[in-house]
Simulated scan of single mutants.
Amino acid sequence: MRPHTPRVVSVIVGHPAVWFLARLALRGAYLLGGLTKLTDWQGALAEQAHFGVALPALSAALTIAVELIGPLLILSGQLVWLGSGMLGVFTLLAAIVANNFWAMPEGQDRFMAMNAFFEHIGLIGGFVLVAMLADRRER
């Protein structure tokens, strides 16, 4: 027999405000990143150049769009699957570009990049879970 979730925990995690705040916490960094890049275009271009991205202006514009539209879809409760998918794919690509630990020599930088890479993979799992929960809530 499996133990059941305590009632107080069920009440807390089932509250609509907690559902919203959890989605905001998972997406907040993307909103902030998108707004920061939008208000500092030169900084956004410099970031793309730092990572050696081809077509930095196009890439910066797409990054801003994904970082703003994805979270807004998720927070609005509309097309949560699309917003989560956008951020999941973006996060995977960003992790590969920015945290390519497999191409680094042994040492502290590689260790930090590896940790950051797998943290990003964890975020992707969070995006999938939010899409799954949103789908269940819609039914």
Rank of each mutant, 00 (worst) to 15 (best):
M1W: 13
R2P: 12
P3H: 00
P3S: 00
H4P: 00
H4F: 07
P6E: 00
P6W: 00
R7W: 00
R7A: 05
I12K: 02
H15W: 04
V18Y: 11
V18I: 15
W19Q: 10
L26Y: 13
L26V: 15
R27M: 14
R27G: 11
A29I: 14
A29M: 13
A29C: 11
L31E: 09
L31T: 11
G33C: 09
K37H: 06
K37Q: 05
K37Y: 03
L38P: 02
T39A: 10
D40I: 04
D40C: 04
W41V: 13
W41T: 12
Q42R: 14
A44D: 11
Q48I: 07
Q48D: 04
Q48E: 13
Q48M: 15
A49I: 12
A49D: 12
F51L: 13
F51K: 10
A54K: 03
L55R: 09
P56R: 01
A57N: 11
A57F: 07
A57G: 12
L58H: 13
L58Q: 14
L58R: 11
S59V: 02
S59N: 11
S59R: 06
A60S: 08
A61P: 15
A61S: 15
L62G: 15
T63C: 12
T63E: 01
I64N: 10
A65D: 01
L68K: 01
P71D: 03
L72W: 06
L72Q: 07
L73K: 10
I74V: 15
S76K: 05
G77A: 00
G77F: 02
L79S: 09
W81T: 09
S84L: 06
S84K: 05
G85R: 05
L87I: 07
L87K: 06
V89G: 02
L92H: 00
L92T: 02
A95F: 03
A95E: 11
A95G: 15
I96K: 08
I96A: 14
N100A: 15
F101I: 13
A103D: 05
P105E: 12
E106S: 07
E106W: 04
Q108F: 10
D109L: 14
F111S: 13
F111L: 06
F111D: 12
A113L: 14
A113T: 09
M114L: 15
N115L: 10
F117I: 05
F117G: 12
E119W: 15
E119D: 15
H120I: 04
I121M: 09
G122I: 14
G125L: 09
G126R: 11
V130D: 08
A131M: 06
M132Y: 12
M132C: 11
D135L: 06
D135A: 07
R136A: 01
R136E: 03
R137M: 00
